[in-house]
Amino acid sequence: MKDNKNLLEIKNLSIHYVTEDGTVRAVEDMCLEIGSGETLGLVGETGAGKTTTALGIMQLIPNPPGKLVNGEILFEGEDLLKKTQAELRKIRGNKISMIFQDPMTSLNPVMTVGEQIAEVVKLHQKVNATEAIERAKLMLEKVGIPGGRVKDYPHQFSGGMRQRVVIAIALACNPTLLIADEPTTALDVTIQAQVLDLMKNLKDEFNTSMIMITHDLGVVAEVCDKVAIMYAGNVIEYTDVKRLYTSPKHPYTVGLFGSIPDIKEDEDRLKPIKGLMPDPTNIPSGCPFHPRCPKAMGICSQQKPKNIEIETGHFVKCLLYENPK
């Protein structure tokens, strides 16, 4: 319908890790779309497969043990999985770039921040060293750091400032898609507010599409247009922000909301999801959530739920919504 408008389309993507303990189905049969200028939130707990999805799009899955077993990743209409390594290098850091979670470890401690920003620019654009450094200064100012600090090393910056440098590197070549993997998790709330604000402004300025990986539903409410909730490698609910927050459908999504203390209201007890995340090498049969699901039926342990569009643009993987009576 709006095929030509989508910047990124993921079709039936499956990624497995083959280990001695068995096969980990890190991502299973994933279908997602991101339009131009849109922000998609990818939400889930530890081990849900969020980061693997991001690395899959960037083609950075360590192989072995990781393997893209199935699917297509269409970026600007072309399948990234069919590209050669040389072609991919031209895309990474240029058209698609990534912000990693930990600003303490994603910068090189023995290079100045200016050199680190200039490195990307030199790699992808036909500029000389002086022009690249100029561009680095400009990017630093864009993210709110004085251009004069271009010759400083990462250890001379605070955590929030370092994350700004990482953002400057990611945006240096004006990417069309930005993948942010928990960009504010390591930061304090007031600094997180600064960084989120900055990312929103820059995204609007450059009209960048973004995939925001996070476990914080508060951050999603603030910056995202669409949300995909992941559980044990599956996208179990996928819709726009408004519908997810006003009428969540999947029992896991409902459980997640029940687990968060509500700052606006008083509640005596939280309503946690019972049990634990399943062992990734031994995912329960049928619906992977059924052992923890308060609404589980007999059939849930036998049949894998299909991805159903319960209303336009609202997808749920749950047997409750299959063949409604």
């Binding site: 605070s158 929030g160 997180q192 507010a193 914080d216 508060g218 409410a221 927050y245 606006k264």
Partner: peptide, 24 residues
């Protein structure tokens, strides 16, 4: 500022956000 900076997991609440300058 601290309270206004908390991301709230709801979309029905709009509030003024105080963004602090600088670091601790």
């Amino acid at each position: 500022a601290l309270l206004s900076a908390i991301p709230i997991p709801r979309i029905d609440i709009k509030r003024e956000r105080i963004i602090l300058e600088g670091d601790v």
